[in-house]
Design a binder for these strands. Sequence first.
DNA 1: CCGTACTTTGAGCATACACTCTAATTTGAG
DNA 2: CTCAAATTAGAGTGTATGCTCAAAGTACGG
Lengths: 186, 186
Amino acid sequence: MRYKAGLETRDRILEATRSLIASEGLDGTTIKAICDQAGVLPGSFYNLFDSKEQAILSVVRQAIDAVDPDPEHLGTDSLADLVEAYIKFVTEQGDLARVYIRIAISGSANNHEIWGRTMRHHQARVSRFAAAISREHPSLSDAEAERRAETLVTSLNGITLHRVMDPDFDVSIHARALLTDALAGV
Amino acid sequence: MRYKAGLETRDRILEATRSLIASEGLDGTTIKAICDQAGVLPGSFYNLFDSKEQAILSVVRQAIDAVDPDPEHLGTDSLADLVEAYIKFVTEQGDLARVYIRIAISGSANNHEIWGRTMRHHQARVSRFAAAISREHPSLSDAEAERRAETLVTSLNGITLHRVMDPDFDVSIHARALLTDALAGV
DNA sequence: CCGTACTTTGAGCATACACTCTAATTTGAG
DNA sequence: CTCAAATTAGAGTGTATGCTCAAAGTACGG
């Protein structure tokens, strides 16, 4: 994979894989479906990827990376910033948000690497939320801030989970309500 | 299916199906796996069920029914009651809770019947929570109570989703925190 | 241009899947 | 005990899956 043609094909395959995981779920994402949608034959796929799982892992990495807001603001963003960034991610990158949720459920069941990746990412995200909470409410203990962050992050995931099932579900209203309630609860 | 033996076999098959969906996910639940775990051969399975999907739907029905607390208290339970009942369901019937979440994601993608069933159940649950909120806070408009109920129910699902991935995750602490915050936010 | 490294082709392989069929066995009402 | 009905056994069906491979085609540095 060094020629331009190969790189372009690789992109098309990853794009097809992403859209398929988003629309059909992990098990609906077959080699045939990927190849059809990417306009490629199995031989080409396996010239660029070692396995179907490798392609899926690439897309999982994309999704996990896209969840986190601009890393340059690390350590300065408010809780509201973090929630707004997440709303933006879910509404503007619907496919990746769907991948993110679907993978968490289907992928983690039988794939230890995906499970580990997802859990590590979750922990990092909770830490970031906890840091923002601590900054805004210095009176809270670290453990309490962490606990509140965990409630908020898992709840946001629940909202996204519902949005995966019902595209009309308004993520922003409910995510902001969660934030308001969380602040009111301190 | 009229003899005692058949009914017992049916139970064993459903039990195997439930535990497999909970531990392996929907796509890991194959006829062979079900039959192995139930100590049955494919011929027996298809003597009792028309298809794999029929067995899965039976388990889905079990899971959906188990989410709802005692229907006799309908119209009298408080929001705290409803949350406590949900915590009890998740912690005491872990398998069915796993089925409930896994089905919502994997089943709804490509199975319209499961999707419809899940959505209808969700709506009924939201209504029940909304009624409790309205009872405790009569000043809120119906629409506002509904919105708050929807935030709470989807957030609780998010907590369960995380518990599916991490068995050590303490559902009760976070679910109660959500309730507290929701009440504080009024 | 040449030649090599890269890419594409598409038939083909082994395996796993949901499901079927017939024959044998077991059940239990009369 | 009898016998029809229900259940089980287990080999077998067709199809879809992930993946391979040899051959043909293309890109591109020299």
